[in-house]
Design a protein around this nucleic acid. Structure first.
Lengths: 225, 225
DNA sequence: ACCTGAACACCGTTCAAGT
DNA sequence: ACCTGAACACCGTTCAAGT
């Protein structure tokens, strides 16, 4: 009887709604989330959520922010073991992203569902996304400094290219494009990671100024699959 | 009085509905399309569309097929002027795709809206997508044969990588990710095409077996932006 | 054969009224 | 301050009945 959760209904509806929505997104995809159903699951009337979120988009945006935070944590874990060279960290960064998208498709989808969320209105979301970019760019720059990537290339452009590849691979997998690109069922993880390794490999080859013997020594064996 | 369009209502509802839905998608995005509204615009009762499409997804899939056909036409146009070398054709292919996505965001979104369409049930859609893959792979293979891309790399993997980059760039632009990646407003076209050019440039560098002097001669000046 | 129009079970959102 | 519950204007989908 001594339950302390119930100011009026049960403390903070806001967080409960975010969690309910996240569960719904997990079960039926982002567009399967309905405010009414989230309210129902949390035991509250259909109008109640609108006291905490101006509209459905705001709820979805809050869910996306939570998902982004979990992404950052998971990707950071993937990178740690491979910090011998910046180029390898870059590869690990990409693999971490791919694996997160694979393991949490609902989170990935909601984070990239431009039509369901409002990135601009969420400082937390923006911060998380900028952190991802900063980490990528810093790693690319370090790899250039270490001589593994041609310093003549623009760092920002390399980072954008890397992200586009990884994001594209993750989306192609999720959007079911891979079968049409010759990837056998069950082979998606290997194929997408091989494509990423190929990109890293291409980035590592042929610096503009020849004579950097250290490059091939630290070049990862990327296309071993 | 002598109008010949009206077997019962006006000939073929099916095509009229597809066009109405396409217009709706253009105006309010794929998920802004409602079967009822399409029926209304075409002057027919809410239940009528279900005589031609089993459900909303089927209508959206038909719209996606129409959009894919237009994509193929537009991309083919982009390629023709640049057929001097296979590597340049590959770049043109990518640019054509990017430009199509830029000019017809609604078409691009509906074609890649896995949650709104059913690719497997549409032979026409599947055919269009496979044609896109075949063209990419053939061009990569030709570039390898011409010595512009290292023949040691797997053709399918190169093609997948190229598509992932281009698809990823197009989606990042549409999903509003570019501002967070250091791309100034108005600079999206230049930035995405530069990233694509960078990829082509990376692909063109450093064949495994050295001593192919012809390579640098036919290598496009990719990163001139 | 093809369409109507009413019906059903849902939505998001608003707003008076309650506590 | 926060929630209820009825209301409004929408959905997708079904199905008898019409032509």
């Amino acid at each position: 009887m001594g339950m302390e959760r119930t100011t009026y209904h049960h403390g903070n509806l806001r967080q409960a709604l975010i969690e309910a929505a996240l569960e719904l997104a997990l079960a039926r995809g982002p567009e399967g989330v309905s405010v009414r159903e989230a309210a129902r699951r949390v035991g509250v009337s259909p109008g109640a959520p609108f006291r905490h979120f101006p509209d459905r988009r705001a709820l979805m945006t809050a869910v996306a922010q939570e998902a982004t935070e979990r992404l950052r944590i998971e990707v950071r874990h993937a990178v740690r073991p491979a910090d011998r060279s910046a180029l390898r960290r870059l590869a690990a960064l990409g693999r971490g992203y791919l694996r997160w998208a694979e393991r949490h498709p609902a989170h990935f989808r909601i984070v990239s569902a431009r039509d369901q969320i409002d990135v601009e209105t969420s400082p937390g979301l923006l911060r998380g996304m900028l952190a991802g970019r900063r980490e990528t760019e810093d790693t690319v720059r370090a790899a250039q400094a270490e001589g593994d990537i041609d310093p003549a290339h623009d760092t920002q452009q390399l980072a954008l290219l890397a992200r586009a590849c990884v994001y594209g691979l993750a989306r192609m997998r999720l959007d079911g494009h891979l079968p049409q690109w010759g990837v056998a069922p069950g082979d998606e993880t290997r194929a997408t990671e091989a494509a990423l390794a190929l990109l890293i490999d291409l980035m590592a080859r042929a610096p503009n100024a020849p004579g950097q013997a250290s490059v091939s020594a630290s070049r990862p064996r990327a296309t071993r699959a």
